[in-house]
Design a protein around this nucleic acid. Structure first.
Lengths: 355, 355
DNA sequence: GTATTTTACGAAATCATTTTCGTCTATTTT
DNA sequence: AAAATAGACGAAAATGATTTCGTAAAATAC
């Protein structure tokens, strides 16, 4: 009977030895030092002798001591964490951006929280509001297509959290941004279509209010103007986030009596939908319709026909954004001087726009 | 002079009102209650009168009070956060999985930390070790291709952190997993190639030691056996994580005197590399070489030729994994009963395997 | 030899929250 | 009317790490 009890206790002890997180207290008991001394030793404080430091480091290593992030966060009012807020993740552009962000964050020993808004304004507001309590030291965000007011972001900025906007940025707010040369590359894209013979170029977009949509549309319009082609509002096609409904919209567009002879898709998914619709309607690309698109598709050159793209340096956008954010975090720059970084996209000609 | 000073103070106050996080103390002062009463009121404790609760709730709402996650985490020893550890993010499969995970996490009001191992074992170990300090309440992981020992994961499990493995799981460890019917679908894939006339089918993989590689190879071998085709080890092509070097490997393979007439790519990127190499070597798909691949490429049917795929239910894998994890977190299931969930992939025939 | 400084460490406050344990008043029970 | 109890709240401990301050002992200065 007693033996069983004994084993039982042994077992419980075993469980507890598994479960027990080693903290400064345990470490200090093990070393015969005070908690404060151990803490200081681990921080390489001048107050601790070299010998003691060695002992402490060795024991910490041996017991695999990891400081409790919550205790540390509470005390230092620092989370060592950043938030990334994006519309969607199953998207070549955004997943590449995250790749870049993660690279930098890992170097800086920072943790990355990811939030998806699914292009829903309510989600964005709620996410941002949940970030006002010191959970993160900084925020990287690309606005959702529905974003009307930026009050939630201004509030967050006012609480002292550094924010970097990338790609989809707010127009009415003083802030740091990382973008690409949307106007110029859209100008080039449109020009490219016209040089390939297009006269009626449709501009496909997801949300009119998005900064990228506006800038890309301006580039499109400027190019039209250069080639003395009248701007036709009917060729601005507003799509949304649902592929099925987008295909219906595009089907309608490509079944018009006066069908466009060129498509400029301001986001990748609309080009893909266009391809599907063309397959469906037996419209030949590029003979009957030329297509160019903003895209980070790795298979662009394997499509039938290969797709001419404007490719944004997505990975670099992530990298630059993160680096800028960490600079702001370090400097505790509370919005005095705002940075604006602009990277260059590249136009890659392929068969979908061949003359 | 005094006026200026006055304004200066006003300004400083403004700054502080911006910066100051509202906490229980401020809230309690505002309400003329004690900190503990406010805390209890916010938790709807029976000790607090209905009227007081209303007052507290109203004030908390008004001042947009958000409890400090670090204080709460420290006190309750709970993070309301999970970790997702994956080899890479710029990958259709993994980004879809994350999409599914995020969906569930958002419902449960959990935060999601993402870590990338870049198929590097050292990274994986270091990441997992950094998760031993209570930073997260649970871990979702897909092993990196290099993972040799799983000691780091066993250690983590021993500290009481629930872990779910998805897709790439360990073979030598008792654990909960979410996978797909890799053996069966690989069997079908190989059979599909043989029914299309292939006799020499190469099997492309990234890491031989990965669970998915092994299961998929077994399915491949079983199908060969069924059709009385001798297994040829020279047709097992071990690639890696670098597209350039993979293309070199594949170029060599497809330049052999006895060239394979079928390719079974166990991961998407190898199929894409194969397409590039075929373009380069002017090998016609499917006439000279048929290709099937595990893939979540949304443009598979737009490729030239369209790619026959085995498509894993990536989003559902993420969803199921997260749901399973949350069940374990709730039950504080310390590894008594391990769950094994297997979902079905689907073979989608397209032109790359047409007879 | 005394005074001062340096060295090396410990005690305790602090961060914001949760939670246990009192405590006081008002009400009910006996 | 005295005793017990319920209702509503506050004080304080506890969570784990950091940091300020205090203090012995040892080393140095005068």
């Amino acid at each position: 009977m007693f033996y069983y009890l004994h084993y039982c206790f042994l077992f419980i002890e075993l469980i507890f030895s598994f479960m027990s997180e080693i903290n400064l207290k345990k470490l200090s008991e093990e070393l015969g030092l005070s908690i404060s001394s151990v803490s200081k030793a681990l921080h390489d404080s001048y107050e601790i002798s070299t010998e003691t430091k060695k002992r402490v480091l060795a024991m910490a290593e041996k017991l695999n001591y990891q400081p409790n992030p919550f205790a540390r966060g509470l005390r230092k009012n620092k989370s060592n964490t950043i938030a990334v807020v994006i519309p969607e993740i199953a998207n070549n552009f955004f997943s590449l951006v995250i790749d870049g962000i993660q690279l930098v964050a890992q170097q800086k020993e920072y943790h990355v929280l990811t939030y998806l808004t699914h292009e829903d304004y309510i989600n964005e507001v709620s996410t941002i509001n949940h970030l006002q309590c010191g959970r993160v030291d900084g925020v990287l965000i690309s606005l959702c297509g529905e974003t009307a007011s930026v009050d939630h972001l201004i509030n967050l900025q006012h609480t002292g959290v550094p924010i970097i906007f990338f790609d989809r940025i707010p127009e009415t707010m003083e802030c740091s941004t990382v973008t690409t040369d949307d106007y110029e590359s859209s100008f080039k894209a449109t020009e490219h279509l016209m040089l390939a013979g297009c006269k009626k170029i449709a501009f496909l977009c997801v949300s009119r209010f998005l900064s990228i949509t506006q800038k890309r549309m301006l580039g499109y319009q400027a190019a039209l103007q250069k080639y003395k082609i009248a701007f036709d509002p009917k060729l601005i096609i507003q799509c949304n986030n649902d592929n099925i409904s987008n295909q219906a919209i595009l089907k309608k567009l490509l079944s018009r009596k006066v069908r466009p002879d060129g498509i400029f898709a301001s986001v990748e998914k609309l080009a893909i939908s266009t391809y599907y619709v063309c397959n469906d309607l037996k419209i030949k690309i590029p003979q009957q319709l030329k297509i160019i698109s903003f895209s980070n598709l790795r298979t662009a050159s394997l499509l039938s026909p290969s797709l001419t793209t404007i490719t944004q340096p997505a990975f670099e956008i992530g990298k630059e954004s993160a680096e800028l954010l960490f600079r702001m975090i370090k400097k505790k720059n509370l919005g005095g001087y705002m940075n604006k970084i602009v990277l260059q996209s590249s136009l890659i000609e392929r068969n979908s726009t061949v003359k």
